[in-house]
Nucleic acid binder design. Structure first.
Lengths: 204, 204
DNA sequence: CACCACTAAGCGAGCGCTCACTTACAATGG
DNA sequence: CCATTGTAAGTGAGCGCTCGCTTAGTGGTG
């Protein structure tokens, strides 16, 4: 069974038209940026009239927020689920980077909007996604801090190391494209090796 | 002797008014993004009337191009000068990362525009800065490839490793701010250690 | 006086968004 | 079983406003 991309990305958004608008929004925002895309762009990419957007979303910014919030929740739960099912810091970091990087490659269009368009959000909505971002960073930092405490990691400052790890993942969405000759999964594995070495681990 | 920030950033741009406009542009573009800033924003930040911009630049896009081209040339020459004065791959990478990261921290406002607003450029201008970017990436890749050949680096794919190194540097401009409790120089040194470990070097 | 940097005023285009209206369809009741 | 009513989803037209940029004119300088 195959399902539409929009249904795969946002399974619990209803109706399908709203999902199509989100998909059109993601693609436009990723290509041209939020401020350079017009509501007419989005609507016509979704095969509808300009006014149709406002049946499902109160504003253009609300559409961006829906995309951004959903994307941040997805990456947070991805990170949290690794921490929930593993305990060894080395394994945690390996799987965490594998999944985080693979997601930013496979979903690079969504990820680009999530990572680089959040400043276009109104203050209140921005604060909500900023909280989610802080939680993601905190999880990574705590794993590194714990590994440093037990001696499996050797890092100067866990804060800086966590920043570096996340930078590597986030930035994948900036340069990755369909033409990249490396699958998301493979890239995630390669990056997790780089990160583990960066954190001063002996590769097992 | 102190000199204005704009004169420090663009010593050979004349007259001073043009530099002030570039500085105002950098600050506006970095804060709100290219498409969200208006020519009125820029002009009033430079203490002039909206029309004054067009005395010195033919368009808003041309102002962005001037900023972007200058910034790319600066980072390229930074990278090339390290390669010109050192030969050991380990030393080259260390200094290269130190300088690249420190620049992206100290000049994070300019760097933000350079790294994240280039898609707003018209096709022709975009192609010019894209060429500069490819040269930067090429230099880094070649240093890593050479180090891998002589055995001082151990990396799976030099292409991926080069991407990772640049990602770390570029992304600094996204999160670094005046309030960051680490000087650009210190950050560069810490990052260069992370990178050397990432590339499989024994720290000397 | 000629020149040049700069301004005040404003033009045409296109923006986000709204409004009056139509359509498709499900529920209700005699 | 059909006529009636209510509702959600969508359209075409266009409003009020702001955008990038232009034009006509001004004041200071050599």
């Amino acid at each position: 069974m195959t399902m539409s991309l929009s249904a795969e990305l946002w399974p619990d958004v209803q109706p399908e038209t709203a999902r199509r608008l989100m998909l059109a929004g993601v693609e436009s925002f990723a290509r041209r940026g939020y401020h350079a895309t017009t509501t007419r762009d989005i609507a016509s990419a979704a095969g509808m009239s300009p006014a149709a957007l406002y049946v499902h979303f109160p504003s253009k910014a609300a559409l961006l927020f829906a995309i951004s919030k959903y994307g941040h929740e997805q990456t947070l739960s991805l990170v949290e689920s690794v921490v929930a099912r593993e305990t060894d810091p080395v394994v945690r970091i390996r799987l965490l980077v594998e999944d985080f990087v693979a997601w930013h490659a496979r979903r690079h269009t969504v990820a680009r909007v999530v990572q680089y368009e959040l400043h276009a959000l109104p203050d209140e909505e921005f604060e909500i996604v900023a909280r989610l971002r802080r939680r993601i960073e905190q999880v990574v930092r705590e794993v590194i801090t714990e590994g440093a405490a037990t001696g499996v990691f050797t890092v100067g400052d866990p804060h800086t190391a966590a920043r570096a790890v996340l930078s590597l993942g986030v930035d994948v969405s900036r340069w990755y494209s369909e033409r990249t000759r490396q699958t998301p999964k493979k890239l995630g594995q390669e990056y997790s090796e780089l990160v583990l070495r960066m954190l001063g681990t002996k590769l097992s």
